Amino acid sequence: MSKPFDMELFLAGVLSGSHATRQRHLRQATLIQAEIAKRWQRKTPWAWQRKHLAWFLEHCLTGRDETTRYYYLLTIRLLARRLETPWTFKI
């Protein structure tokens, strides 16, 4: 049996800011991971493509407040930085 993916360890190198900010990024990244895994069966960020994160922004955050969408965008940018990809996203 394999261990579940540790998002905290994955983001450890790029997380900065206050404890509350780091916890928010971890919580949001875990939710993003769960939604992508449910839709595309891609369990780790290493298997993701840009389209997966763009889908999350478009479909999972529909109807959410602008502030919420912005905070998720920040988390997605953090994930892209950790994956060392040149992906850009807009809300």
Results as ranks from 00 to 15, higher is better:
Ser2Thr: 14
Pro4Asp: 12
Phe5His: 03
Phe5Arg: 04
Phe5Met: 07
Phe5Cys: 05
Met7Gly: 04
Leu9Lys: 10
Phe10Thr: 05
Leu11Gln: 02
Leu11Asn: 01
Leu11Pro: 01
Gly13Val: 06
Gly13Cys: 09
Val14Asp: 08
Val14Asn: 02
Ser16Gln: 08
Ser16Arg: 09
Ser18Lys: 10
Ser18Pro: 07
His19Leu: 06
Ala20Leu: 02
Thr21Cys: 12
Thr21Pro: 14
Arg22Trp: 05
Gln23Glu: 12
Gln23Lys: 11
His25Lys: 14
His25Phe: 15
His25Trp: 13
Leu26Gly: 14
Leu26Cys: 12
Leu26Val: 13
Leu31Ser: 03
Leu31Ala: 06
Ile32Ala: 02
Ile32Cys: 07
Gln33Val: 03
Ala34Gln: 08
Ile36Asp: 03
Arg39Thr: 12
Arg39Ser: 07
Arg39Lys: 10
Gln41His: 13
Arg42Lys: 13
Trp46Tyr: 01
Ala47Gly: 15
Ala47Cys: 05
Trp48His: 06
Trp48Pro: 08
Arg50Phe: 01
His52Ser: 00
Leu53Gly: 03
Leu53Glu: 02
Leu57Met: 15
Cys60Ile: 00
Thr62Leu: 13
Thr62Ala: 11
Thr62Asp: 14
Gly63Ile: 02
Arg64Trp: 01
Arg64Lys: 04
Arg64Pro: 00
Asp65Val: 04
Glu66Ile: 08
Thr67Asn: 01
Thr67Asp: 04
Thr68Val: 15
Thr68Gln: 09
Tyr71Trp: 03
Tyr72Ser: 01
Tyr72Thr: 00
Leu73Ser: 01
Leu74Tyr: 14
Thr75Ile: 10
Thr75Gln: 13
Ile76Arg: 06
Ile76His: 10
Ile76Gly: 10
Leu78Arg: 07
Leu78Ala: 09
Ala80Gly: 08
Ala80Tyr: 14
Arg82Cys: 07
Thr85Ser: 13
Thr88Met: 15
Thr88Glu: 15
Lys90Val: 11
Ile91His: 02
